[in-house]
Amino acid sequence: MSELLFVTWDGGGNVPPALAIARVLQGRGHTVRFLGHESQRAALVEAGFEVEATSRTRTFDRLGDTSPLTMLRTLGDRGAGHDLLAALARRPADLVVVDCLTFGALDAARASGTPYVVLEHLHDAAYRAMLAGPLGLVVRLRRLRPSLALSRARARIVTSLPVLDPLPSDGNFVQVGPVASWSPRSQPVGAEEPAVLVSLSTFGYPGMREALQRIVDATHDLGARVVVTTGPAIEPAELAAPPTVDVRRFVPHAELMGSASLFVGHGGHGSSMAALAHDLPVVLMPMDPNADQVTVARSVQAAGAGRSVRKGASPDDLAPVLAELLADGAHRSAAAALGDAVRAMPGDVLGADAVEAALSRAPAA
């Protein structure tokens, strides 16, 4: 069996895919450990993994300062690369699995000749847009070389759905499908009492509480049961919600989606794919135009399974959209078709297969 080191960061939705793939690999007998931000240590240890010490990685907490400048500094952090090499010096690994947004660690793996794969936990189309935008510019100004690092990886493991995120025909891509938790439904979508699940990000985006309040206000006359999960970034008591709206801090999505009729989210890849895995139409309100959320929302809308709405949309703007998607229509069959596709590609298992295949693959030229 092999020694594997996963490099991650405290970004919220990027962590569950890495953990799920790591669990499969650990279950197959491989030794798996993690390197990430100190703010992640407790959760990673609780998940059953050893966590490497850091000394030069920048401090970051997704519930603290998430300004654009802080994000650029965090993702382009060379300290993560230094800590990666220090961890490997203490205890070598047969393969390193690097989060695609930890550019400092990615470049250190490339420059040192370390065998590595890249885990893309989002639409590759969104990742390409990031590299072509301000983030890519800042990373290159820091004299990191992301394009070269990507090309030299033994594989780029992409956890997206081919129909929503078609990949270029060339390159070292291995598209494994979304890592989405789901539970079988007892009844078809819409057969039970209409229910709406509203859940935005676990990341502390500016203006998210106000956006969530407008969504809650838009459900006033919807005629459906509404469950809202606020996540760690928003206190449930901060929302003004009527007694008919059940507001909770956290409930696993798979427990609620199995009896829901509609999902309202922020366009995060993980929650959006989980909703589709339950055959749910979606209304997606991206919180950050520089993240992957806009791309996810547009791809689902183009597939006919949901609608993309503005972050600043008013309750009056949102109410008819929610009513339309809660009702029957072609969007339900489109969501079900995407659900079939998600369930047919278990990203955790296929991702683990791709990691194991890369262990014996020769380094890219």
Score class of each variant (00 low, 15 high):
343 R>Y: 08
67 S>M: 08
126 A>D: 03
18 A>P: 03
102 T>E: 08
105 A>N: 00
104 G>M: 00
69 L>C: 05
153 A>W: 14
112 S>Q: 11
319 A>V: 05
141 L>C: 09
74 T>G: 06
346 P>G: 05
228 V>L: 06
96 V>R: 13
143 R>M: 13
73 R>K: 14
90 R>P: 00
274 A>Y: 07
231 G>Q: 05
196 V>A: 13
185 R>V: 08
263 F>K: 05
175 Q>C: 06
92 P>C: 11
4 L>I: 15
136 G>A: 14
41 R>M: 00
91 R>G: 14
34 F>V: 00
5 L>T: 01
184 P>A: 07
48 G>Q: 05
76 G>C: 12
25 L>N: 03
139 V>I: 14
99 D>K: 06
247 V>H: 11
252 P>D: 15
8 T>K: 01
187 Q>T: 13
199 S>W: 08
65 D>C: 09
211 A>G: 15
104 G>Q: 01
133 G>F: 09
130 M>V: 02
122 L>W: 01
230 T>R: 10
114 T>S: 15
326 L>M: 08
130 M>D: 01
176 V>D: 11
65 D>P: 03
133 G>I: 10
312 G>H: 09
108 A>I: 07
76 G>I: 12
35 L>S: 05
269 H>D: 10
362 A>C: 03
256 L>Q: 12
334 A>L: 07
155 A>C: 07
254 A>I: 00
68 P>K: 08
273 M>K: 02
346 P>W: 02
275 A>L: 02
153 A>E: 06
190 G>W: 15
6 F>D: 00
286 P>D: 10
358 A>V: 04
124 D>A: 02
63 L>E: 10
185 R>G: 09
142 R>C: 02
348 D>Y: 05
296 V>C: 06
274 A>T: 15
256 L>A: 08
328 D>A: 14
86 A>P: 07
4 L>P: 04
319 A>G: 05
126 A>E: 03
147 S>Y: 06
306 G>E: 05
68 P>E: 02
354 A>S: 12
144 L>P: 00
72 L>M: 08
189 V>R: 08
154 R>V: 10
231 G>T: 07
274 A>H: 15
44 L>Y: 01
118 V>A: 03
257 M>G: 00
207 G>T: 13
212 L>M: 06
292 D>T: 06
8 T>V: 15
154 R>H: 11
7 V>K: 00
180 A>P: 13
196 V>L: 13
57 T>F: 06
294 V>R: 14
261 S>V: 10
4 L>N: 09
36 G>P: 05
175 Q>Y: 14
215 I>H: 03
364 A>S: 15
256 L>R: 10
82 H>A: 15
346 P>M: 03
254 A>S: 08
175 Q>P: 12
219 T>G: 10
261 S>P: 06
350 L>Y: 04
94 D>P: 12
200 L>S: 11
92 P>H: 13
349 V>Y: 01
104 G>L: 01
59 T>V: 10
18 A>G: 02
10 D>I: 03
60 F>R: 07
250 F>H: 14
